[in-house]
């Protein structure tokens, strides 16, 4: 197995957008990645991430392990799927039978597994409660409030449908943000670089909550 450094903790994320956005957001909030304090591992998609949960937790003796996943549909469904995966290893770690709360915490969930001196954390993008939410919704909160380009981008994205644009309704926010990014000083930067270039801010309430959850889970000062 590819060792991400023998004792380094890991954060599992869905895609490379999540990975880069998170790394740059954390760096904008004072966390250095040289060397990376945590291995941020891309799973590819939500099903793969959820599939990995039981084994990733089991293998996390004396470490922390975190999971960032888009809510996508309804928060309750997503959380139920996660709870099932966690409960599936309660036979090995009895403390897990009831330690995961029935609802995700709004500031990110962290539980302890005393049997293996570990902590497990879950963050449902963007804010642990939004129906139909994803990474882009968190990034949206980092756009300067009142930025006119953001309003025009949304209008343009809406109007594009009249001209045959094919993106799905749930991807509206993605279309809007990418449109907005197309109009920045360096047009078309991907999310991570755009955060670094300060097109996005770094301290909306939900971003601050995310950074705090990360620091608490991985014991970073």
């Amino acid at each position: 197995m590819i060792a991400a450094g023998n004792n380094i903790s890991r954060l599992h994320v869905e895609g490379t957008d999540d990975q880069h956005s998170i790394i740059h957001l954390l760096q904008r909030n004072g966390i250095t990645f040289d060397p990376p304090p945590v291995d941020i591992h891309v799973e590819g998609n939500d099903s793969r991430l959820i599939e990995a949960i039981p084994v990733a937790i089991k293998a996390a003796k004396n470490r922390s392990v975190g999971f960032v996943i888009d809510i996508d549909t309804t928060p309750t469904d997503r959380w139920a799927a996660i709870r099932n995966k966690v409960r599936s290893i309660a036979g090995d770690f009895p403390s897990l039978t009831n330690s995961l709360p029935t609802e995700p915490s709004q500031t990110g969930t962290i539980i302890e597994i005393p049997e293996i001196t570990s902590h497990v954390g879950f963050w449902l993008m963007p804010d642990n409660r939004m129906h139909g939410g994803k990474l882009e919704n968190l990034l949206d909160t980092l756009v300067t409030p009142g930025d006119p380009l953001r309003s025009i981008a949304e209008i343009a994205a809406n109007q594009s449908r009249l001209y045959g644009a094919e993106f799905a309704p749930q991807d509206q926010i993605k279309a809007t943000l990418h449109t907005w990014l197309a109009w920045q000083k360096e047009p078309g930067r991907p999310y991570g670089t755009a955060i670094k270039a300060r097109y996005f801010g770094n301290n909306s309430p939900v971003a601050i909550d995310f950074v705090s959850w990360f620091k608490l889970l991985f014991a970073i000062k």
Binding site: I2, A3, N6, E43, A52, V55
Partner: peptide
């Protein structure tokens, strides 16, 4: 099966 998942996800079981 879990060993297989671990390798697929590059999770180190040491």
């Amino acid at each position: 099966d879990e060993i297989r998942i671990a390798v697929e996800h590059e999770i180190e079981v040491r």
